[in-house]
């Protein structure tokens, strides 16, 4: 468990030392893992490179997953953007395609960075890397953003296991969204207060999100959800910069998520026994895959 038990504690520590949250966190990480702060940052850079590689590979591929449900949606977006068609800016396009690219690499058994989990691996990299490119930001800023994002995940995980099987998707893609929101605020020069506020705004909006994957696979609705929540992270950062406050403080939101997770039916915890997984179509897909795969064995 992190030394700081909740967001308030790390916020107060940072305020008293006049430091950013990532500075407190990288120092903490260096202490508990007995390496230098510089080494912590170098390790983050290795994972950052793996994130960039996943995006690069994912943008080039149309290969479908073993189930055949997903894998060629990034290509569809790229096709649209090739002709300059889009409702929004180039950065928006990048966020969407990077989220799809990463998740599609994941489902075709490519190399990704779990962030915080494999099923939510597209959100943080899409937001942070797309925005860094549009601002021409140096990798050091990306490292600061990733450490900030990681700290948000750590602090949530002090109270709530980051696993769909334990607390539903709110604890996977939901937490990834809050991580991305906070990381983005850091990269764009926001204050500690704005970082935590962005994370709070994001978390409030994913409260109760269930984990109901079709056939139990990390595909439907996970791939598209990563893209949707990447955009939500940007919204949270934007609101926070505008001074729009979360009425409920972040630590109380995490307590509420924990309560919701505990009350959530096991049918909505990655068991594929409810929600989308047991819709008519969901069940048909499951049956088809089960038959196909049992023939192979």
């Amino acid at each position: 468990m992190m030394k700081y038990k909740d967001f308030q504690e790390i916020f107060e520590e940072a305020s008293s030392k006049n430091k950013k949250i990532y500075e407190i966190s990288e120092q903490h990480e260096a202490e508990i893992t007995e390496i230098s702060v510089q080494e912590v940052r170098e390790k983050v850079k290795i994972n950052l490179k793996a994130m960039k590689d996943a995006i690069k590979q994912g943008l080039k591929s149309k290969e479908k997953s073993m189930s055949g449900m997903c894998g060629d949606d990034c290509a569809k977006l790229l096709e649209r953007y090739k002709y300059g068609e889009s409702l929004f800016s180039e950065t928006y396009q990048k966020i969407l395609t990077y989220a799809f690219a990463t998740m599609e690499q994941n489902l075709r058994m490519g190399k990704i960075v779990a962030c915080p989990t494999a099923g939510s691996c597209g959100i943080v990299p899409a937001v942070i890397i797309a925005m860094a490119e549009s601002r021409d930001a140096d990798d050091e800023f990306l490292v600061n953003a990733l450490i900030t994002a990681g700290t948000i995940g750590q602090l949530v995980s002090n109270k709530l296991a980051l696993a769909g099987a334990v607390a539903g998707c709110q604890s996977e893609c939901g937490v990834a969204c809050a991580m991305a929101a906070g990381g983005l605020v850091e990269m764009c020069g926001g204050t500690n207060e704005q970082i935590l506020n962005a994370a709070a705004l994001a978390l409030k909006n994913i409260m109760g999100l269930v984990c109901d994957p079709v056939a139990g696979l990390v595909e439907v609705p996970c791939v598209k959800r990563n893209a949707f929540l990447a955009i939500q992270a940007v919204t949270a950062a934007e609101l926070s910069f505008a001074g729009i406050k979360s009425v409920i403080p972040i630590d109380e939101i995490v307590d509420a998520m924990k309560q919701v997770g505990e009350l959530m039916s096991p049918k909505f915890k990655e068991s594929a026994e409810g929600g989308l997984a047991t819709t008519k179509t969901g069940l048909e897909i499951t049956e088809k895959l089960t038959n196909e795969w049992s023939l192979e064995n």
Partner: peptide, 25 residues
């Protein structure tokens, strides 16, 4: 005993997908 979550348990690990429990595990 719960293992200490480090930064790299959250921003990581680098794994082959699609599932940390069903593939990496």
């Amino acid at each position: 005993m719960e293992k200490t979550k480090t930064l790299f348990d959250i921003i990581g690990p680098v794994i082959i997908g699609p599932s940390s429990s069903h593939t990496a595990g």
